[in-house]
Every structure is written in C-alpha cells, then in structure tokens.
Amino acid sequence: MSIDINNVTKRFGDFVALDDVSVSIPTGQLTALLGPSGGGKSTLLRIIAGLDSADSGKISIEGTDATKLPPQKRNVGFVFQHYAVFKHMSVAKNVAFGLEIRKKPKAEVERRVEELLQLVHLSQFSHRMPNQLSGGQRQRMALARALAVEPTVLLLDEPFGALDAKVRKELRDWLRRLHDEVHVTTVFVTHDQEEALEVADEIVVINEGRVEQIGSPDQLYDEPANDFVMSFLGEVTQLDGKTVRPHDIELALQPVGNGELAGTVSRVLRVGFEVKLTVHLESGDDVLVTMTRSHMRHIGVEEGSKVWLTISKGAITVPIHGGVPTPA
C-alpha cells in the first residue's frame, strides 16, 4: 500500500473535520476522494501532504511514517484548486522550481522541464508568464510542476473545480491518459461523482468526516453500502419504501397486476436526450422517473397521463431508513 492512513482525527474548534478515518491507498492507482463540500476530503488530502496536521492518528507514505514530517520532506506533489502558480516566474521557471530547490545540474533541469512541458502540451508556452495562460493551461502547468520532483504520490485538490464544464471534461480525460503514461500513485479530491466514476480506479466516499465506502466505481454504483453513497453517486428517488435510481423505474400506461403503484404524470422536464417525469402517486408522494426521449415517445406518455410504476428487475434499491441494499 502506498499511503496508509490510520485513525486520523482532525478538529477545527468544535467542528469535527475527520473522525477516526482509516484508509489505505494502493500504489500506482488513481484514487478519488469523493464527497460533499465540507465533508473532510480536502482536509484529509492536506494532512497527507503535510499542509495540515492531524490531531491524532498516523500517516505513512511508502512504508515511512510521515506523521511528523514537514511537507518538503514527504516527496509528494500537490496540485491546488486555484493552481497556486508562482505569478512572478515564467512557465519554465515554475516547472523548474522543485528541481532548482534540489540543486540539480542546470542541464538536467532544462532537459526535464522540456520533457514535462511536452507531456502537458505546453512546450510552446515555456517563456510565457502564468497570467498569459488560460485556466486549463495553468492547471496543466501546475501538474507538470508537481510531477517535476518525481513525487511518490501526486495529490490533487479539486483540480478542475475552477474550470468551466468543457475544459473540465477535457482535462479529466487527459488526466486519465496521463496517469496511464506516468503511473504515479495519484489521489484526487472531487465533489463531482461523474468525475470520480469516469477517472478513478478506486473511490473513497467521505461524508461528515467519516469514510462511507471504499471500492471501484462499479462496486460503488452496483453495491452502494448505504443510502448516502447511493444518493451521492447519482440521482435517486423513493418508491414503495425504497430508495431507487429514477431510471430503474418502469412506467406503464396500464396495470399488469404486479403490485404497481398508480399515479399521474404531473410534470415533464426535458434535458437534452433525457426526460425527467414527476409522477404524483395516489398515496400523495412524488416520484421521479427518467427515460430517454425516444422511449417516452414510444410508450406515448405525456403530462396528465395516468401511469403505473414498478421497480425494474435487478435494480439496486436501499430501504429508506438505513439498512443494507438488496437487488429487487
């Protein structure tokens, strides 16, 4: 295991940011710390980097106890949400910083900087100042800078959080490909479940200072440990006393006699290819159902239609008030 976090607790005044957290992060993988804002994931990342210190517990990196080590002795690369570029240095100087601190020979620094700028596709910008770069370029530069010191682990704190949606998506794919090339143990913090599901090999779901679940994207999606994990990984709705994903609900215009619940379509909202239907049940509850636009046309449902709902076979459901998930 590359990073071992044992029983780490951190408080800010009365607020418990991390409550007895233990996680092991495997070598060479891309791991996501996923959770809502204020859930403690950034704090955990900063404690791994040594930028914050834990009140109690232990951190070890590659088998070395790092709990008391200052950040500069941990050999981690850290990428900040707001880039933290050195504004008074050129792109090349930014990337060279860690190498110059380590007093590497000049020729080696130059060669390495060139290599890294090539890796992040910024070669032609090496003499620019950071304020002449776009957000995405700055973040790529920050990544090259962190990689320059050949860190044992690379830590990214909401790396794409300050970028617009399109650039985010590009950089996300790019990070995945970069990781496949470089293979450095990488941990990144995100509150975007799509980002985590798409990029990570392993996801650690953190909420209110506790680890809710650790697993591969598939495991998390197919076997959510609880209500929270299920609802955090995607939209959920409630039907028949269970939490279920809205695309796992089957909707019919006639009852088939299979314990369906009857209701009326009260609202139809189209988002691109997808349609979100709000169904007002006879019991008074509202249920969200999603389907593709073409499927909706096919069955001929519209606002005001009387419909019958049932949970699809094999869908993942979780009983509403806690409990273990079961396939329906």
């Binding site: 040594g50 930028l51 500069q72 690369g77 860690g98 601190i101 962190a146």
Partner: peptide, 28 residues
C-alpha cells in the same frame, strides 16, 4: 491578497521556510 497557496505549493515542492520566503513570498 496573494494568500498562502503559492507558499504551500513551494513547501510541497521541497522548499524550506527560508527558501520559500526568498523565492516566493518576497518577490510577490
């Protein structure tokens, strides 16, 4: 205004406190 992001980045890249001051804080 400049915040301490740059200083923390320098620390994580291996700079000691005096190195961070002379190379990052003071120029800023």
């Amino acid at each position: 205004e400049i915040g301490n992001d740059q200083e923390q980045a320098a620390r994580s890249l291996g700079a000691s406190a005096p190195q961070t001051f002379w190379r990052i804080t003071l120029p800023s």
